[in-house]
Design a protein around this nucleic acid. Structure first.
Lengths: 212, 212
DNA sequence: ATTACTTTGTTAAATATATAACAATGTTTG
DNA sequence: CAAACATTGTTATATATTTAACAAAGTAAT
């Protein structure tokens, strides 16, 4: 199911693109082509969320987007915060502040007094003490952690105390959190190592970057 | 095997840490604890690379690191380049320029003339035309793509033409490359969407962030 | 209308990955 | 030196994920 969720979010973005181009219908193999997965997996994914197309016309793009929006709880725009306004943190602020339709980055936090009270791309930066107050006020449920590894666990603890339910963690440590909190780790150095490894050992006939 | 590779790279980093702390041996359940995986999986992973511990002392850290270094082709330091010196690109330059023991970020490239000939954290930035020359000179085999989505495919084509064998792609598009080239996609917006989804739908008893 | 065709939804098989179990092994203890 | 113990290496089982296959259904052509 987890992989399916990832792909569904991708499909939604791609379908919005297609809709923007004026297309009204799409076949499973077309969605497969632009997403990089196989047609079989596209059909199976859509089956999972209960959306049905028609044999000759495929899927109706607008209806499918609506269906995906429902699946992803659309009308609700979730608030999120970011902790750690270093190089990566500020880059992510710039990245996530743009698209406001699915989520709303309401604040950044940093322990450096020189950064506090500044705004990055319009996003205000506060000191860490303000976290409880701002989470409470905004009902933020997700936090992004971009602090150094040694501070990540204490920041995670702070977020969990304040009812954060999901964490996107860029610090290269394994966070310990209650089972009810979902953590997604993004370890950039490890990803690069993986590419370095497979740049040497990768052989033809792998499925990665499929395209069937 | 892919998942195993990811974990092995993580183990190596954690073991170096432990070694730095003066520890000489480690048990599978300890490595499991700090990595966030289960002891069974740690043992299975190490079995896969043919390193053997002893029942009562566990694994000898230094020897295991050596073994992992061999597995990851250690003495060889691979060169890499980055294309797209925007917010994210510059943050990644700062991130990757630090650790020079496994890889060596030799240059960044950007189409913006205002960025060309600048240095970011000591990393020189060139125009895209210089790519062939610099790849040839450095024997770089891996490229990081942090350009906007609309330019990503053409940059990927350029890298492939110049014998790049692995790509770490941050642009939110599915790249089309020859099968011999390995692509790892990092789609930050999708990762955030995934966290948003599971922050609501995550239930106890999932395996993610295991800790067994 | 009937036939041929395309694409779907769904089931079945294949592959990949993780968990659990346990005999083998070496260590320590008495 | 034998018994108890902890931890390994490995195999067997379970789960997750992908691929492949194909009947059912709708469409277009004749």
């Amino acid at each position: 199911m987890e992989k399916t969720i990832e792909r569904l979010a991708l499909y939604r973005r791609l379908l919005k693109n297609q809709s923007g181009k004026g297309n009204t219908h799409i076949f499973s193999h077309q969605l497969a082509g632009i997403s990089g997965y196989s047609a079989a997996i596209v059909r199976r994914d859509l089956m999972n969320i209960g959306y049905y197309g028609t044999p000759r016309h495929g899927y109706e793009i607008k209806a499918l987007i609506d269906c995906l929006n429902v699946f992803f709880n659309k009308p609700e725009v979730k608030s999120l915060i970011l902790v750690g306004a270093g190089n990566l943190g500020r880059a992510l602020i710039a990245y996530f502040i743009k698209d406001k339709t699915e989520y709303n980055l309401i604040a950044a936090f940093d322990s450096d007094p020189l950064k506090v009270n500044l705004k990055y791309n319009g996003c205000p930066c506060y000191s860490l003490e303000k976290i409880p107050e701002l989470i409470a006020a905004s009902q933020a449920s997700v936090g992004i952690i971009t602090v150094p590894a040694e501070n990540a666990q204490s920041v995670a603890d702070l977020l969990v105390e304040n009812k954060i339910k999901g964490i996107l963690n860029f610090a290269p440590v394994s966070l310990t959190v209650p089972e009810s909190v979902y953590v997604e780790n993004v370890d950039l150095a490890l990803m690069l190592e993986k590419v370095l490894y497979f740049s040497v050992h990768h052989r033809e006939g792998e499925k990665k970057n499929g395209m069937t």
